[in-house]
Amino acid sequence: MNNHLADLPAWAAAIAALLLLAGAGLTLIGTVGLLRFGSFYQRVHAPTLGSTLGIGCILLASMLVFSVLESRAILHELLITALMVVTTPITLMLLARAALYRDRSEGSDEVPPPPSSPDARPPEPAE
């Protein structure tokens, strides 16, 4: 199985290598963003580079390599893509809503007030 990879034609190896580099590079950039951004809500954007196009490139490389090696279409990776797309919103929303709840209960000015309680606004200062 290991020597199998030596059978990979050069063109496929080159394309797969480029895709892997692009995917890893995007994931790295996303991680740098996680370090550089200031607030929670900005930080949550950065790793999505890795979870969208980053993983997409890596899965494309995987599909290409195994399809060429086995001379038939290998499409497992589409399942990983679909499951990623369907499940990441759940964790992201959970994190974002938890942060929003925390910030609202601390009375932070950075976040908008809940829309369904217009009369919960702080009272106007008396004259």
Binding site: Y41, H45, L49, P89, L92, M93, A96
Partner: peptide, 11 residues
């Protein structure tokens, strides 16, 4: 919204 970086669905 989640799959496009730069936008996050909050509530």
């Amino acid at each position: 919204v989640t799959a496009t970086p730069g936008t996050v669905w909050v509530a």
